[in-house]
Computed example of a mutant assay.
Amino acid sequence: MKLGIHLGYWSAGPPEHAQEIVRAADDLGFDAIYSAEAYGSDALTPLAWWGASTKQIRLGTNVIQLSARTPTATAMAAMTLDHLSGGRFILGLGVSGPQVVEGWYGQSYPKPLARTREYIDIVRRTIAREVVTSAGPHYPLPLTDGGTGLGKPLRSTLHPYRTDLPIFLGAEGPKNVALAAEIADGWLPLFFSPRSDDFYRAALAEGFAQPGARRTATDFEVHASVPVVIADDVDGAADLIRRNLALYVGGMGARGQNFHLDVFVRMGWEDVCAQVQDLYLEGRKDEAAAAIPMEMVDDVALVGPAARVREQFSRWEPTVVTSLLVQGVTYWPDPLRGLQTLAEALR
């Protein structure tokens, strides 16, 4: 299993020490760094800035939101970054959720699987320098309804650095995971648990079995984002994770439609999730975090002294995960020393 870093999206401003962390990860032989976007910082600009000082580490988005850009605009950005990085870019895509898609981008959320399939098809054909047309219904090209009628099919003027630029798909539900296995080169799970390995293997197998599937289980990558806190105080380290889990389980989505909550329900944490969501939506965020047991933290995170982290990591090694993306590095007291310690502990 390889190691990577997920720097995520920014909070109120750029994360401290990010440039130094990226350079250190490159020097230590980490496989990839990832950025993200929600409704603040974008995922592409930080990769271009930070990645300019690296030599070998791969640069990925985890994830670019489909509704933020048209498929051809995303393909343009992907080809540009792939050229600038010498073929090190990974295009990670995801649909996001209805609150962001409809509230921030002003677009319709329904039919996310069909939209994803159509979107990736256009991206691939753009990168292959085909004359791009699409019958829609989600991304018709050229536009024929409501426009001037002057649009015409076009081919990218930019020749790609790689026509096989890898596309990964962020997915949580079984149908989305199966779709990733069918049409993408990799899967970006959030809140993966080794206990759910059989469940996800079955979903991936369903995708690999589809006619025309792009990859097989042997050449498909799974890059799982895993919060990591190396500290002597296990419970104190777990508290940092609890706050993040409470946000996603309790506040990232509406009651009755929260895809992150659904992941933990499938793990068997239904009662805890209901309590956390109730407390969080009532504004009792500290209580929501405190309601998360240590066992739930250990399901999806690595916390504690280096020896404990190494012991917990052994549960991940037999799973479908091919690269573990360390989250939370910018919040460590000494990120550079922490990366070195982590690399030594997990190798």
Rank of each mutant, 00 (worst) to 15 (best):
G268L: 06
P112D: 10
M267S: 02
L165G: 12
G97K: 09
L3N: 05
A36S: 15
L7R: 04
A237N: 03
I183F: 02
R88A: 13
Y161C: 15
P227F: 02
E344W: 07
G51K: 01
A128G: 14
G97R: 04
G103S: 09
P189K: 00
E221K: 10
T148V: 00
Q99F: 07
L84D: 00
N62R: 12
M76Q: 14
P14R: 04
G92E: 01
E130H: 05
V177H: 00
R315T: 09
L325P: 14
N258A: 13
L190H: 07
Q210F: 10
Y9L: 05
K111V: 14
R347K: 13
R310G: 11
G304R: 00
G151Y: 08
V263G: 01
G207I: 15
T70P: 01
R347F: 12
F30E: 03
Y248H: 04
R195H: 13
T70Q: 12
F220T: 08
D82C: 09
P174Y: 02
P137W: 05
V132A: 15
R243W: 07
G51C: 06
D31R: 14
R347Y: 08
T341V: 07
P15Y: 03
D235N: 12
R243N: 01
A184I: 04
E20L: 10
L158R: 07
T45M: 09
I167R: 00
A43G: 07
G147A: 02
F264I: 00
Q65Y: 02
Q56T: 08
D262G: 01
Q56P: 05
H223N: 15
A36P: 15
A213V: 09
I183Y: 02
D26T: 06
A345T: 15
S225N: 08
V95G: 02
P46Q: 06
L339H: 06
P110E: 10
L190A: 06
I90S: 04
G86K: 01
E172S: 13
H159N: 08
